[in-house]
Nucleic acid binder design. Structure first.
Lengths: 340, 340
DNA sequence: CTTGGCACTCAGGCTGCGGGAGTGCCAGCA
DNA sequence: TGCTGGCACTCCCGCAGCCTGAGTGCCAAG
C-alpha cells in the first residue's frame, strides 16, 4: 500500500521532471497529480525514495530529480507504453509505403522516428550477415572491363568494376555468370562467399584467371562489412531543444552521431522479436554519454532481426512515448521489408 | 599608401578576430602584427573603416569586429589561399584513392573536408542531369518479376522491381534487354528517357505490355530527381566548437543540415571550372543563417560540373584555409571520378 | 599624417542582499 | 502505525550597485 504510493510518487516525479525540466517539489506534485495525500506525506515518501537511490536533490532546498536508477525503475515497472493512435498508424504506414527502395525505406524511417519522438533517431542499415544472395550480374563494359553487380535479399545492391587481363568472350561471360549464380543464388552470404572461393578451381584452366578476378571481387564485396556499419541519423536539430540537458555540452553527443561505430555500440546488440532495449545514462558503454539514454529494438523478420533502430536522447526523455514510437516504426519497417 | 595600410589593418582585424573570437582593439593589433605605426594611428584607420562599413563595434569601448562587408573585402582582395602542403596532398590523394565506389568517394570526401577545415562539410552527390547511361540490366527474379538495374556513367546505380502481368520468356527478355540498351547506352539521361518512352511502340504487339512496364519504371527512375537532392554531411561535431559564434543558437544550423533542399540552396548554383563561391552571412538566401558563411565549388570534369561540395561555418571562419581545402578536395574528387 | 596624452564610456566580474521555494522534523491525530 | 499541519532552516537565484580595465575619440604637438 505504502509501497504503491511511493511508486506513484516516483512516477509523478519522473513525469513532471521530464515535462518541466525542473526539479519537482512536494507541493507542486500534489497539485498536479491527484495523489490524495498532503505534501508532508509526499515528503516522507520522497525521503525514502532518496534513501533508496531513486531520486536525488541537486542541492538542499531544491526539488527532487530522478536518478538513473529511478528512471530504470520507471521504465521497468511503471511504464505502460500507450499504443499509437489510429491516425498515427495510418500516417506511419502511408509514409513508409511510399518508399521506392531500401535506401529510401531507411531514410524515411529515420525521419519518421525523429518526428514522432522529437529526438535524434538512428536506423542501422540491414546487415549483410543475415541476407541471402538474390542474383549476381556480370556486365561487360568494355572488352577487358566487367561490372559486377551483387543483389542481396534485403534489397541491397553492391557493384564493383573489375579489370581483366585479357578479353572475355560473350560465351565465356555467360558461362561464368551462370556458374556464379548457380553456386550462390539463395545462399546466405557466408555460404556464398565460401562457394565462390572454390569456384575457380572447378573451371577449365583458361577461364580460371577471369573467374578468379570476378570471384575475388565478389568475396571482397560480400565480406566487406563497411555496410554493416552504415547507419542513418535524423532529427539532429532536436538536440538544440535540449540545450543543457546533457550536462553542459552537446558536443559528445554530436561526436557520437558522427562516429557510426560508436552509434552502433550505443544501439547495442541487435535484439530480435519485439524486445525493446532501454539504456539509461551510465548503463551505456560511454562515460562521455552518461547523460544520454537510448531506446532501441531490432527490426526485420520476427525470428531474425536484420538490424537495429532507435532513438537517442537525454536521460530525461519521454520513455513511454519513445518506446511506443520505436516499437511501432520497427514493426512497420519489418513489414515493408518483408513485402519487398 | 594610406589605403594600403587601412587594408592591412582590416586584414589584421579579420585574422585576429577569427583566431581569438574576441573584438580586437588597436593596442593588441600593433602588438601582434608588425604594422610599424602606433595604436593611435590604427585607431584613426579603424574609425575610417568603420565609417565605410567594414568593421563595427559590438558596443562603445569595445574592440572592433568585421562586418559581412568586411569579410567580403577580405575574401575578395586580401586573401591568398595558401596551397596545401605536399604531405597534405599526399594524404588527401591516398585517402580518396581507397574508395571502392561512388558512395564511398562521397563519404570519404565529406570526412576529409570536415577534418581539413574543422568545419561542417557538405558534399552533393553527382547529379543525374549530366550523366549518361552506361548500361541497363534486366534480371528475372521470378517468372513475372523483373529486377531492373540502371547504371549511370557517374557510377550511380538505381534498381527497381517490376511485376509483369504475364511471364516473359528468356528470349523475349534478352530481346528487350538488347533493345533498351541499344537506344540508351551512352546517351545522356534526358535523351535516354525520351528514347525509352518511344521504344514500346516499335515492338511487336505481344511484347509491348512488358516493354511498357519496364520502360515506364526506367523513365521513372531516371526522372526521379530524388538523387539530385542527396547530400552527405560531415563534421557536425565541429559545430560544438563554435558554441556562440552563431548568435545564440546552433539550432537553425542544425535544422539546415537536416533539410537537404535547404543545404543545396545554401551551396548555391553549381559552378564549373575551379571557381570558388563564397557566401558571407546575409548574402545567403536564409535570414535564419545570417551568421553563417559558405565556401563551395563545383566538382567533376572541368567543363561540366556534376555537383557541388563545400563547407559551412560561422561568418567568422578561416576563409583562406577553407577555400584552399575546398578547392583541393574538389580537384582530387574530380580526378577520381574521371578515372572510374 | 603620425603620435602621445587624456578624459570618457561601458561590459563584465564581484559583492551583498532579500525573496521564495523547498526541505526536515516534530507533535498531534485517526 | 501512518498521515498531517506547523515551523524553523537552508540555500539558489535574481537584482542592484560598485569598480576595474580595455578600449575609444579627440586634440594639440611634432
Amino acid at each position: 500500500m505504502v509501497e504503491d504510493r511511493k511508486l506513484a510518487v516516483l512516477r509523478a516525479i519522473v513525469e513532471d521532471y521530464v515535462s518541466t525540466e525542473e526539479p519537482v517539489g512536494s507541493k507542486a506534485l500534489v497539485e498536479r497529480h491527484s495523489l490524495g495525500v498532503s505534501p508532508a506525506t509526499v515528503r516522507n515518501d520522497m525521503a525514502a525514495l532518496e534513501e533508496e537511490g531513486f531520486i536525488t536533490q541537486p542541492h538542499t532546498s531544491a526539488g527532487r530529480v530522478p536518478t538513473d536508477k529511478g528512471y530504470r525503475l520507471f521504465v521497468d515497472r511503471l511504464t505502460t507504453l500507450k499504443p499509437m493512435s489510429a491516425a498515427e498508424k495510418r500516417a506511419i504506414s502511408a509514409f513508409l509505403d511510399e518508399a521506392v527502395d531500401l535506401d529510401d525505406v531507411v531514410q524515411r524511417s529515420v525521419r519518421l522516428l525523429a518526428q514522432l519522438t522529437r529526438q535524434v533517431a538512428v536506423v542501422q542499415y540491414p546487415t549483410l550477415a543475415r541476407s541471402t544472395v538474390r542474383h549476381i550480374e556480370l556486365v561487360a563494359m568494355a572488352p577487358t572491363r566487367l561490372l559486377v553487380v551483387l543483389i542481396l535479399s534485403t534489397g541491397r545492391v553492391e557493384q564493383r568494376l573489375v579489370d581483366l587481363h585479357e578479353a572475355l568472350s560473350d560465351d565465356h561471360l555467360a558461362e561464368l555468370r551462370t556458374a556464379v549464380n548457380r553456386v550462390t543464388t539463395g545462399e546466405p552470404i557466408s555460404a556464398a562467399s565460401e562457394a565462390l572461393s572454390h569456384l575457380p578451381a572447378e573451371l577449365a584452366r583458361e577461364r580460371r584467371v577471369a573467374a578468379e578476378a570476378v570471384t575475388g571481387v565478389l568475396v571482397d564485396a560480400i565480406s566487406d562489412h563497411r555496410s554493416d556499419e552504415r547507419v542513418a541519423v535524423g532529427g539532429t536539430a532536436n538536440l538544440a531543444r535540449f540545450g543543457e540537458s546533457f550536462d553542459g555540452s552537446i558536443r559528445p553527443m554530436l561526436e557520437a552521431l558522427e562516429e557510426h561505430v560508436v552509434l552502433l555500440k550505443l544501439l547495442g546488440e541487435t535484439t530480435s522479436g519485439g524486445t525493446l532495449t532501454v539504456r539509461i545514462g551510465h548503463e551505456g558503454p560511454y562515460q562521455q554519454l552518461a547523460a544520454t539514454s537510448v531506446v532501441a529494438t531490432g527490426y526485420g523478420p520476427a525470428d531474425a532481426a536484420l538490424a537495429t533502430l532507435g532513438v537517442v536522447g537525454p536521460t530525461r526523455m519521454d520513455y513511454p512515448g519513445s518506446m511506443a514510437a520505436v516499437r511501432a516504426v520497427a514493426r512497420y519497417v519489418s513489414r515493408i521489408l518483408d513485402e519487398a
